[in-house]
Computed example of a mutant assay.
Amino acid sequence: MSLKPLKKAVLPVAGLGTRFLPATKAMAKEMLPVVDKPLIQYAVEEARAAGIEQFCFITGRGKTAIVEHFDVAYELERTLAERGKQTELDLLRAQAVPPGAIVTVRQQVPMGLGHAIWCARAFIGDDPFAILLPDDLMMCDVSCTAQLARAYEETGGNVVAIEEVPRDRVNRYGVLDVAEDKGRLVSVKGLVEKPPVDQAPSNLTVIGRYVLMPEVITHLAKMEKGSGGEVQLTDGMAKLIGHQPFHGVRYEGRRFDCGDKAGYLEAQVAFALQRPDMAPAMRAILKQYA
């Protein structure tokens, strides 16, 4: 049986961003810039590089700027054109997505990541879909989502991006119970959300990139509460294991936790150093604080 192509992505963006208050009092945390692009744009660009064509933003109150960011700004574009600012105009046009490519769904009550994904059930339908958490900013030569898409084509089932963390930090993540470790691909026999350190089955943890089969929605719809009293995506994914292929992918690249202040600041430095137009100035600045 041929696989359905991966063309859909869900981006949960309803969080309050309390760790970045007061900056996020009136500003969506996903609009926080890294150098000169907001986190949400990095996520969308990553997904588009993997062939994703349709996007569903799971939003909450005060998140309208996220959608407007991808709209056409006619007045701004006209002003840039009149002033001969072609470089800036090209940047704006490059971020635009085709009409109808973005839909939004409200998550009125914050009941967990699993609940947020369930809110996108009509958008997902019977298709495989990617999930990107914009807080996890990826620096990869090949889009992290593209790496997962390739693994999906190889295995024909669910795949999640994974990385090893120190044992004393496993209680912050969803953790894999490994059936077979093949290097890049890890066959999964179980998943545990935020286990106590002494009970974690491994130190291989799931980060904010997934490609899942639509059957996960059936399990999330039961609204069973897990860790933290919330509907956990990890619990829904765990119920797919044994019924569908499920693999972890050791992605090639680097993740920056931009839900954390230190991680966000590190991302600013790393992404600036990667750019020829910014690297010399950033290095000069850093020398002052060495």
Rank of each mutant, 00 (worst) to 15 (best):
residue 193 E to P: 10
residue 224 E to I: 10
residue 118 W to Q: 08
residue 62 G to N: 13
residue 200 A to R: 03
residue 42 Y to R: 01
residue 49 A to S: 14
residue 87 T to D: 13
residue 225 K to C: 00
residue 264 Y to D: 12
residue 20 F to N: 13
residue 3 L to K: 11
residue 218 T to D: 13
residue 60 G to Y: 02
residue 21 L to V: 07
residue 213 M to N: 12
residue 271 F to K: 13
residue 154 E to S: 07
residue 95 Q to H: 09
residue 189 K to A: 10
residue 278 M to A: 14
residue 88 E to C: 10
residue 244 Q to A: 10
residue 213 M to F: 02
residue 139 M to F: 04
residue 219 H to G: 07
residue 111 M to A: 14
residue 47 A to E: 10
residue 195 P to A: 05
residue 183 G to A: 02
residue 280 P to T: 07
residue 171 N to P: 05
residue 216 V to C: 03
residue 277 D to Q: 11
residue 228 G to P: 07
residue 258 C to T: 13
residue 118 W to A: 13
residue 211 V to I: 15
residue 288 Q to K: 15
residue 39 L to D: 00
residue 152 Y to W: 02
residue 247 H to R: 11
residue 114 G to L: 04
residue 93 R to K: 15
residue 19 R to Q: 12
residue 152 Y to H: 08
residue 53 E to C: 10
residue 130 A to I: 12
residue 103 V to H: 09
residue 285 I to W: 09
residue 99 P to Y: 09
residue 123 F to D: 01
residue 279 A to C: 01
residue 114 G to C: 04
residue 62 G to F: 04
residue 268 Q to Y: 03
residue 106 R to C: 04
residue 129 F to S: 04
residue 164 E to Q: 14
residue 181 D to N: 14
residue 130 A to N: 06
residue 262 A to V: 12
residue 116 A to C: 05
residue 271 F to E: 14
residue 176 L to G: 10
residue 206 V to Q: 04
residue 81 A to W: 09
residue 79 T to Y: 13
residue 24 T to K: 07
residue 274 Q to G: 12
residue 277 D to T: 15
residue 197 V to F: 08
residue 172 R to M: 14
residue 119 C to R: 15
residue 178 V to K: 05
residue 258 C to D: 01
residue 221 A to T: 04
residue 4 K to Q: 14
residue 58 I to K: 06
residue 142 V to M: 03
residue 224 E to T: 13
residue 139 M to D: 15
residue 149 A to K: 14
residue 194 K to D: 00
residue 97 V to C: 13
residue 51 G to D: 09
residue 111 M to P: 00
residue 262 A to W: 06
residue 18 T to F: 08
residue 22 P to Q: 07
residue 236 G to Q: 03
residue 283 R to E: 15
